[in-house]
Design a protein around this nucleic acid. Structure first.
Lengths: 169, 169
DNA sequence: CGAAGATTTGAAGGTGATCAATTACGGTGG
DNA sequence: CCACCGTAATTGATCACCTTCAAATCTTCG
């Protein structure tokens, strides 16, 4: 968040993600829970000792950090180059893939939005109004159905993928 | 780069940065040199062995990865929330701080732009024209002086810092 | 000199922001 | 159960910023 009130959410964490900066002195990360969370926390010193003793564990969080970096870079593309509609679709797609990781087929599924509109806007670099409009837009295009305030139904995942402008290999 | 031609540069590397994804199978990073570069490359397998044997080295690139993640997140804010003018100023500031890391005082300095306009645009999520206009804008505001195509002079670094964070009308 | 590429500048148009009003929802108390 | 209130979400109208399209200028190099 900048001094003048502009805010940007720079990442979403899902269980069982690790958060923290071992071996780094100066770090300012701010995290807010948007759902009920069970959190397991360690003093940095203890964690660092543990990692020193257990290379496999350090390896594991190192890999997670690389994955987060790749994900952050995907969002750089989304924020820099995608339209508002594509951003919202991409967000929904992110939620679906994290909520249900082995979702491959083009099947209907219901997803729960862990964020309210204001948070989605802060995550996508948009305003609340634009997020709302684009959800309406996607609804009218038949890509999603609004169940209630924070639940939507996706009848065809592929349609959402397309709206999000995701390339398949 | 997406199929329809939109492109986003997701990071800049400076010597002696490390690039690569040890311990990860599926990785697609594309890197292009924009200046003359001396590159030292290893087969992944050799690198992984080396890191297994040398925890200090793994620690080092792990820390760099964390730093890159923090940097990527700063850019998420820039791309999501900053105006075109602030983006261009932020880019110039990034170059100055990397080219001359211990630049603290508010002194004049000349900087060399390693990217052409098209690349700056792809990095900032803007168009070539907008980048050009904002450089003109900053020039007219006395924040920079254009020396030639890829060199500018910054008379007051603080003014640039201010332009990079908060926009004043 | 000529050609191709890069940059700047101009004018018009579109997307998303801003401002404003309305509607829907959830929680509380009567 | 319903009235009430504060917050969240939607919708509408207008505006600003950035993009798009177009053209001129500048640079580089054969």
């Amino acid at each position: 968040m900048s001094r003048d009130g502009r805010q940007q959410i720079v990442g979403l964490q899902f269980a069982p993600d690790f958060m923290g900066r071992p071996f780094v002195e100066n770090t300012d990360v701010e995290a807010l829970a948007s759902t009920m969370v069970r959190l397991c926390s360690f003093p940095v010193s203890v964690l660092e000792e543990l990692l020193e003793e257990t290379p496999a564990m350090e390896r594991r969080i190192y890999r997670q950090t690389m994955a987060e970096l790749d994900e952050a870079r995907d969002w750089l593309f989304a924020l820099g180059r995608k339209s508002a509609r594509e951003k919202v679709a991409s967000f929904l797609l992110l939620i679906t893939t994290h909520a249900d990781p082995d979702q491959v087929a083009d099947e209907a599924l219901e997803i729960e939005l862990p964020l309210k509109r204001a948070d989605i806007a802060d995550f996508l670099g948009l305003t609340i109004e634009t997020v709302s409009r684009q959800i309406t837009n996607l609804r009218k295009a038949g890509i999603l159905e609004v169940i209630d305030r924070n639940r939507v139904n996706i009848p065809h995942l592929d349609a959402l993928r397309q709206a999000a402008c995701v390339e398949e290999d």
